[in-house]
Design a protein around this nucleic acid. Structure first.
Length: 173
DNA sequence: AATGTCTTCAACCGCCACCGA
DNA sequence: GTCGGTGGCGGTTGAAGACAT
């Protein structure tokens, strides 16, 4: 009762930061009362962890970070905190949001209208000096293969490049 | 310029696990 | 063993800005 909700003001941020810097955050539930904030402990904790912590890394996710999220999500599922723990400076909330707004679409598009495809390293490129090779496409659906063949550079070329970066460069097939 | 639609992301909610009494 | 308090997690929401018409 009497608790504030919604976006945090700059003043509230300042109060929370200075309180944690001088007293720490041993007890989140007691913290707002001690600091003089009209927020619940959970809200203070979330604000600190997701936004105010000094080691937060903000800004766009790098290609490497995106690759890591995809690979980790593939093996761990929606374990956002576990995934975030492997990305220094990133929070579970940030990773989760990025997944839902960017990566989920890419994964979805990779299975266009129910078509599935896989990437394979071309045998002939096995001798590639740096171990990298351009991806070839093995379509699981003959109709899609036919369509792609008919249209030359197709809509999924960007997707192919993306998955190439994710899987092929990391040595997966 | 006005209005509608879509996208993004900070914040909230409910649930669960853990811990000490 | 159980109970209450607390922290942490994942799913979801909604405000604000971006973009399209």
């Amino acid at each position: 009762m009497g608790m504030r909700k919604g976006p945090w003001s700059a003043e509230e941020d300042h109060i929370l930061i200075s309180h944690i810097q001088t007293h720490g955050h041993a007890n989140w539930r007691a913290l707002p009362k001690q600091a003089g904030l009209l927020r619940c402990g959970k809200s203070c904790r979330l604000r600190w962890i997701n936004y105010l912590r000094p080691d937060i890394k903000r800004g766009k996710f790098s290609e490497e970070e995106q690759d890591s999220i995809l690979k980790l999500h593939q093996s761990l599922g929606n374990k956002w905190s576990t995934i975030a723990a492997r990305l220094p400076g990133r929070t579970d909330n940030e990773v989760k949001n990025f997944w839902h707004t960017h990566l989920k679409k890419k994964v979805h598009n990779a299975n266009i209208s129910g078509y599935s495809y896989t990437l394979q390293l071309q045998e002939a490129q096995a001798s590639d000096g740096n171990g990298l090779a351009s991806p070839s496409i093995v379509f699981c659906d003959a109709k899609l293969e036919e369509n792609i063949g008919n249209h030359g550079s197709c809509q999924i070329s960007e997707e192919m490049e993306f998955w190439y970066n994710v899987f092929i460069k990391s040595g997966q097939k």
